[in-house]
Design a protein around this nucleic acid. Structure first.
Lengths: 230, 230
DNA sequence: CAAAAATAATGATTAATATCAATATTTTTT
DNA sequence: AAAAAATATTGATATTAATCATTATTTTTG
């Protein structure tokens, strides 16, 4: 059983094409006032509605980024994996966090000052392009997720989420899921009970296997079919 | 009966704080290769999947911006009104259109070259800030719409859409709706029949009045309540 | 380690919404 | 102006998914 669960990327400078476009001096500037914090599983890293003056970088662990709305369920926009910059859309308007980020496992987070990052965007055109590319891609991914959640039905959405977790988060057909049922419900945009129901169905049809919290994809092709037509 | 339907904003230079941060020379540069096109009601202005090399500005008329997905219903992200720059998220990655824009009424559209705009973003910090602010705000609005569509139920979503149309699009309690039932369904993320059903209910409860295609908001407070709790 | 709390599993019930079908109306075209 | 096409209205039915209730299991905490 392979588990890519503990991928680490504490060395942020080498982690992403983002930083390779920066000069020594610029890196130094970015690192000024940079802090690194350890969060325990379950802790809130950044709360929706608070002031956005830092940009986050995930060194190790997994986190969820979700939108809250009083009286409604949370909706998980994305699972954040090591090596990624997390920069809300609010960054450019010096606004408030539009989403909350919480640790799914113990995580190591670095914080950079938004102002410094913004200055670098103006100074360095290459950096600007790479940064905006990543930023935009994130936005497009969120659109994709949100718009499909609305239009597919439960099995299709669950198939999507399982493939997402397997392919993009854990990089493996078999993984120990760090999300509980409620998280999974909020990732799929359905109720907790529907999660249970559809997971049971998938197991009966031999599409997946679940033992404790170890998920195993048995029939990827069938899942892709359900994703497409269900 | 007041109808703010035909607001015009052909003079793009004075229309938005966006342009006031540009110098004479910069405006000239932006205007190079700028073209203006008239579209008839129903025509596709920009198709999802095509190359994004121009940014649009709506001079007059109304348009819808929506995401397509084979086999699924369209989902309308936003109704575009005169005086707004339309710049997909793909702009920064020099990518493809992630959404389609089509005319709901006859419209006058100006196209600016993305490359020129991008150059100005690098040159002019004020322009950058204003532009990014608008861009970001749009993204956040889309998030808001998409995430609420998923979590509210039919009456709540319809109440949201009616308030959106009244307050943000037509600026009036009474308006001649330029969307047909299918558009409305795609704006609310529900089926066409559900649109009819809930509109009938709203009329019975004296929340709105519909005559031909003239919509009149009778009880805004009740609608806001439904939006909140329904 | 035991008790308590949280989470998960399962089936039954209810509520919400989409689909279908049949008719009426409006708009467009000839 | 008449015919055709598109859009809208309405009610009935079927499907889907949420809620509820109960029991089992797992995890956390003292």
């Amino acid at each position: 059983m392979k588990k890519e669960n503990s991928r680490e990327c504490l060395n942020w400078r080498n982690s992403s094409p983002l930083f390779s476009s920066l000069s020594e001096k610029e890196v130094e500037f970015l690192t000024e006032g940079y802090i690194q914090v350890h969060f325990k599983k379950g802790e809130t890293i950044r709360k929706q509605g608070t002031i956005l003056d830092h940009v986050m970088y995930i060194g190790s662990g997994l986190a969820k980024q979700y939108i809250e709305e009083p009286g409604l369920n949370d909706i998980i926009l994305t699972i954040i994996i090591p090596g990624k910059m997390v920069c809300s859309a609010g960054f450019f308007v010096n606004g408030l966090q539009y989403s909350t980020v919480a640790a799914l496992t113990d995580t190591e987070i670095s914080f950079f000052k938004s102002d410094h990052l913004k200055d670098l965007l103006h100074q360095n055109k290459d950096f600007f392009n790479v940064f905006m590319g990543e930023f935009t891609q994130t936005v497009l991914n969120h659109y994709q997720r949100l718009s499909l959640i609305n239009r597919k039905q439960v099995p299709g959405r669950m198939a999507d989420s399982l493939l997402y977790l397997s392919k993009e988060i854990y990089n493996c057909d078999e993984f120990s899921l760090d999300l509980n049922r409620l998280d999974l419900a909020n990732l799929c945009g359905m109720s907790k009970d529907s999660v249970d129901k559809v997971l049971r169905d998938f197991q009966e049809e031999k599409l997946i296997q679940i033992k404790k919290n170890i998920f195993k994809i048995l029939d990827e092709k069938a899942l892709r079919n359900i994703s497409k037509f269900g």
